[in-house]
């Protein structure tokens, strides 16, 4: 495989996300499949950071509060993600013994 150590963008090219076709960037649509083409995502770091911070914040209530309420004969039992994991490990150990 011969290779050129340059990026597609430096040649004014971009790969289509739908069909992988390399096409000049000044055309806004892929010549093969007609999909919209763009070079880099705009504000990518800013978007990533914003979503990452939100995900970190939501991670806390997702693990602290119950994910499922089990209702059996009138008694309701809440369970968290980690609780479910603990139950399945305990059950496996019980079955082994």
């Amino acid at each position: 495989m011969s290779q050129v150590q340059t990026s597609a963008l430096s040649h004014g090219l971009a790969a289509c996300h739908m069909c992988c076709k390399l096409a000049p960037l000044d055309q806004h649509h892929c010549p093969r499949c007609g999909s919209v083409m763009h070079a880099r995502k705009s504000d990518s770091l800013q978007r990533t950071l914003a979503l990452l911070v939100t995900a970190c914040v939501l991670y806390i209530p997702a693990n602290v509060y119950p994910i499922m309420l089990t209702d059996q004969l009138g008694s309701t039992e809440p369970s968290t993600i980690m609780g479910g994991l603990a139950v399945s490990i305990a059950d496996t150990l019980k079955a082994r013994l």
Binding site: Q3, V4, T6, S7, A8, A15, C20, L22
Partner: peptide
């Protein structure tokens, strides 16, 4: 082909 991860021409 251009790499989807780093845009290298191959």
């Amino acid at each position: 082909i251009a790499c989807h991860g780093c845009d290298l021409l191959i």
